[in-house]
Design a protein around this nucleic acid. Structure first.
Length: 267
DNA sequence: ATGCCTGCGAGACGCAGA
């Protein structure tokens, strides 16, 4: 069977609902991993999305974060939060909070996780250390599936550009998060447990960026980054027939600052 | 034209995003 799986940081599923429904109808993914819902699970627009034939496993708490898996080919064994997922201890908080940044589900022949890796903010910030801890927990949580025979992938916004070619100008990122050696080492650690970077083709220009800042004409100037990634095990990667960044979805007003990444499989 | 940032919750701005 052919299966189309996509990932998209939607930057508010409620603000973006018309764009999301339009994109689902045109791209027709079988499975879609969403990040940055920016709404609670209760406020997630399950009904409107359901009318297009999708079941949803949503996981959100409100203003920040939030992830979901949408599927029209089955949605089983839903897991909210990674096993062992660390919380974030904000400066003014008494206790760490486990944020809604991961949801896993089995969709027909494939198991996926939709992940929204912490941003890190600045390299000397507690959020950066949290980001690295979070990635360690991710590796440990998916180790078994990564090594297994079932097609498996972790799709989402990793907030890391794996190589210098994944940012428009590496000099512009000197000293900033998303390109540091420890962050890239965390991606290498995912590769060491059997996951590989399924690199999409761009629909225009030479690099498959997936994110462009809203400011300073970043999109028209193609000042982008490739941070929305598909890390897949061998069974998944071997079944890939095509993968691309749908930059058309980034055009115009009222769009997310990220574009969807589409992966086609023959299973 | 792809065109100079956006969403959210609070509160009439500030934070976060990357």
């Amino acid at each position: 069977m052919t299966v189309r799986i996509a990932t998209w940081n939607i930057n508010s599923v409620t603000a973006r609902l018309p764009k999301l429904l339009e994109w689902l109808e045109s791209a027709k993914p079988d499975v879609l991993c969403l990040q940055e819902l920016k709404c609670s699970t209760e406020a997630y627009p399950a009904e409107a999305i359901g009318e297009l034939g999708y079941e949803s496993a949503a996981h959100g708490t409100g203003r920040w974060n939030g992830v979901a898996v949408l599927s029209k080919i089955g949605l089983e064994d839903v897991v909210r939060d990674l096993p062992g997922q660390p919380g974030y201890l904000a400066e003014d908080a008494m206790l760490p909070v486990v944020e809604p940044r991961a949801v896993g589900a089995t969709c027909g022949p494939v198991r996926v996780w939709s992940v929204y890796v912490p941003n890190g903010r600045e390299v000397d910030h507690a959020h950066y250390r949290y980001k690295l801890e979070w990635l360690t927990a991710l590796r440990d949580a998916v180790r078994e599936d990564a090594a297994g025979p079932r097609p498996f992938a972790v799709l989402g916004d990793y907030n890391i550009a794996p190589t210098d070619a994944d940012v428009f100008d590496v000099a512009a990122f000197e000293g900033l998060t998303h390109v540091t050696a420890p962050e890239r080492a965390a991606m290498t650690a995912l590769q060491e447990i059997g996951l590989q970077d399924v690199v999409p083709r761009p629909l225009k220009y030479d690099r498959p960026y997936t994110y462009w800042d809203y400011r300073q004409l970043a999109f028209p100037k193609n000042r982008g980054m490739r941070i929305d990634l598909t890390y897949a095990n061998k069974a998944f990667a071997d079944a890939v027939t095509d993968t691309y960044v749908d930059r058309e979805a980034r055009k115009g007003k009222g769009t997310s600052d990220h574009a969807p990444v589409v992966v086609d499989l023959d299973l």
